[in-house]
């Protein structure tokens, strides 16, 4: 059992890892014909099934809430209602949002239900940005002051009123606010982001090597 439960999966990750890695360094034509083309097609299909994991675990947790009648279990029914409404409309419209110039039922659901809900959910965050800015943006250190100044340039640089104000107050510097924000993006930001990128790249390379060699296998779950 150990063989099919553990060793073969570890062999799979090793073999596919090394082979995929190798394709980067051998002539593309060769890699493409014998390996990559098939793999790319397969991976794309397997990845689509991974979505079922998210779907089933959501269904399962809300099914449990309803079954156990935990506080607020009635709301869980709306998860199923939302799902069914979209799927039924999709089947009716065969996955199309429009037929010619007319909205299908799926198109209606997208515009008035799904899009409205997701836009509203994210829009609410604007309120929290503002209240957090008031309650916890404390300029206590020089570092916090630098962060505030950078943010300030971008906030006022983004709106016309800010540009007008800047030109009135700082016309004598001969520098426009967009030159300042451009400089921040093109010079100090490049240094900072590049440092982060190199850090992440090193981390990704190490983790990937650990996965290929079977050292990191948390994703496999417990035995």
């Amino acid at each position: 059992m150990m063989l099919i439960k553990r060793y073969i999966p570890l062999a799979i990750v090793f073999v596919f890892g090394i082979m995929t890695l190798a394709t980067y360094y051998i002539p593309p034509k060769l890699a493409q014909d014998y390996y990559l083309e098939t793999m790319n097609k397969w991976i794309n299909i397997v990845a689509a099934f991974a979505f079922l994991l998210a779907l089933l675990s959501l269904f399962y947790s809300h099914y449990n809430k309803i079954k156990r009648k935990v506080d607020g279990w009635g709301y869980s029914i709306f998860v199923y209602i939302g799902f069914l409404v979209v799927v039924v409309c999709a089947i009716k419209s065969e996955g199309q949002l429009m037929t010619g110039p007319a909205l299908t039922s799926l198109g209606w659901i997208f515009r008035f239900l799904y899009n409205t809900l997701s836009a509203s959910m994210f829009a609410v965050l604007a309120y929290y940005i503002v209240s957090t800015a008031f309650r916890s943006f404390r300029i206590k250190t020089l570092q916090a002051f630098v962060l505030f100044m950078a943010a300030l340039f971008f906030i006022i640089g983004k709106v016309p009123l800010g540009n007008v104000l800047w030109n009135k107050l700082f016309f004598w510097t001969n520098v426009s606010i967009s030159q300042v924000t451009d400089w921040i993006i093109n010079v100090p930001s490049v240094a900072a982001k590049r440092g982060i990128m190199i850090g992440i790249a090193v981390g990704a390379i190490v983790t990937s090597l650990k996965i290929i060699f079977g050292i990191e296998r948390q994703y496999m779950g417990k035995d």
Partner: peptide, 22 residues
């Protein structure tokens, strides 16, 4: 209610996209 509806509708949307596209 709106929050749970969003969760369900979002999953429904993804489901139909996966179904009709892949």
């Amino acid at each position: 209610i709106a929050e749970h509806l969003y969760l369900g509708a979002g999953m429904g949307w993804w489901f139909q996209v996966m179904f009709y596209n892949i």
